[in-house]
């Protein structure tokens, strides 16, 4: 095992542990904070694998913006302190879905590459840029269109309720 392997295993274990804690924690805000650790650990995994750009974007977007928004919503609704108890059926279904996804992804990887060791070299930042804005430009644009639609819908939902209130007045 090279030092990189050790590092990867360590970061991976931290990520997995944080993810499990995030799912099993009953206090929602603590779950959110464990999610920060899990996503940060994931960025670490990317970094160890040499995908530097993906790691940094992961940190910037998911940790720096998405989870901040999640925590903000929790603070705003004051639901962070409350203990959440899910039904056992809920838990079983969630566990089954999680295990299924794990098996599916793991199986695909094993089927594709076998058990042999693979040399990983993360793509350079230039290569990723060229891929996104060259080969994958249409899916990329489609995604932004989807986000735009979501944004417009959110504004519409927010403002129509407002107008109805004004009408009632």
């Amino acid at each position: 095992m090279t030092s990189r392997d050790v590092l990867f295993v360590a970061v991976g274990l931290i990520t997995a542990a944080a993810a499990v804690l995030s799912v099993t924690n009953r206090r929602v805000l603590h779950a959110g904070l464990w999610l920060v650790v899990a996503l940060g650990g994931l960025a670490g995994c990317y970094l160890v694998l040499g995908a530097e750009l993906v790691a940094l974007v992961q940190l910037l977007v998911y940790v720096g913006a998405v989870v901040v928004l999640v925590l903000f919503a929790l603070m705003l609704t004051r639901s962070g302190a409350g203990e959440v108890d899910t039904s056992s059926a809920h838990r079983w279904v969630a566990g089954a879905v999680g295990a299924g996804v794990t098996v599916l992804l793991g199986g695909t990887l094993v089927a594709a590459y076998g058990w042999s060791e693979r040399e990983v070299a993360g793509p350079s930042n230039d290569a990723i840029g060229e891929q996104i804005f060259g080969t994958w430009v249409w899916p990329f644009e489609l995604l932004s269109l989807l986000l735009l639609a979501a944004l417009v819908a959110a504004v519409a939902v927010a403002t129509t309720g407002h107008r109805r209130q004004e009408g009632e007045r």
């Binding site: 805000l29 920060v36 940094l56 974007v57 940190l59 910037l60 925590l71 903000f72 962070g80």
Partner: peptide, 25 residues
């Protein structure tokens, strides 16, 4: 000297906000 140091600095400083959020909560 990391290759994408601009992104690195921005990404890392964006984590600092959790200190404020955690303190607030």
């Amino acid at each position: 000297d990391v290759p994408a140091s601009l992104l690195f600095v921005l990404a890392v400083t964006s984590v600092g906000i959790f200190g404020t959020l955690m303190a607030g909560w």
